[in-house]
Amino acid sequence: MSKKLFLLITIMLSISLALLGCGNSANKTSSDKNSGEEVYKLSFNVQIPATHKFHTDVVKPWADLVEKETNGRVQIEIYNSGALGTLATAYDDIKGGVYDIGYVSPGLHLDSNLYPLTIGDLPFGITDSGVKARVLGKLKDKYMKDAFNESTLLSISSTDSYQLYSKEPVESIADVKDNKIIVQGAERIETVKGWDAVPVSLGLEQIYESLEKDTVDQTTYTSVGALGLKLYEVAPYLTKIDLGATTLVFLLNSNSLKKMPDDLQKLFVEELGPKLGEMTGEMYKNQADSAMKEYGEQVKSQGGKVITLDGAKLKEFKKPSKKIWDAWAEEGNKKGYPGDEILEEFKTLIKDEGGALPF
Results as ranks from 00 to 15, higher is better:
S2Y: 03
F6D: 15
S16F: 08
G23T: 10
G23D: 12
K28H: 06
T29S: 12
T29R: 11
S30Y: 03
S31A: 08
E38S: 06
L42Y: 02
Q47C: 10
I48T: 09
K60C: 02
K60S: 08
K60Y: 10
P61E: 13
W62D: 00
E67L: 04
G72Y: 05
R73T: 13
V74R: 00
N80D: 13
S81F: 04
S81A: 13
L84I: 03
T89N: 14
A90G: 03
G96F: 07
D100E: 08
V104R: 05
P106I: 05
P106Q: 08
G107C: 02
G107F: 01
L108E: 14
L108T: 03
H109Q: 09
L110K: 14
D111M: 10
Y115Q: 05
L117N: 08
T118R: 08
T118S: 10
I119T: 12
P123L: 07
G130K: 05
K132C: 11
L136H: 12
D141I: 00
K142I: 05
E150M: 07
L154M: 09
Q163P: 04
Y165K: 02
Y165P: 01
Y165W: 00
Y165V: 02
S166F: 00
K167I: 12
K177T: 07
N179P: 00
K180L: 12
K180W: 03
E187N: 13
E187M: 10
E190Y: 06
A197P: 05
V198Q: 14
L202D: 15
G203L: 07
G203K: 11
L204D: 14
L204N: 15
S210G: 11
D214P: 01
D217K: 02
Q218E: 14
A226K: 04
L229F: 11
K240S: 08
D242G: 00
A245I: 04
L251M: 15
L251P: 06
L252M: 13
P261K: 04
K266A: 09
F268P: 03
G273P: 09
G273W: 15
G273L: 14
K275C: 11
E278S: 14
E278H: 10
A288Y: 04
G296T: 00
G296A: 00
G304H: 02
T308R: 02
D310G: 14
G311Q: 15
K315D: 15
D326M: 09
A327I: 08
K334F: 10
P338Q: 08
G339N: 13
K347A: 12
L349R: 12
L349D: 13
L349Y: 09
D352N: 14
A356S: 01
P358L: 07
F359R: 08
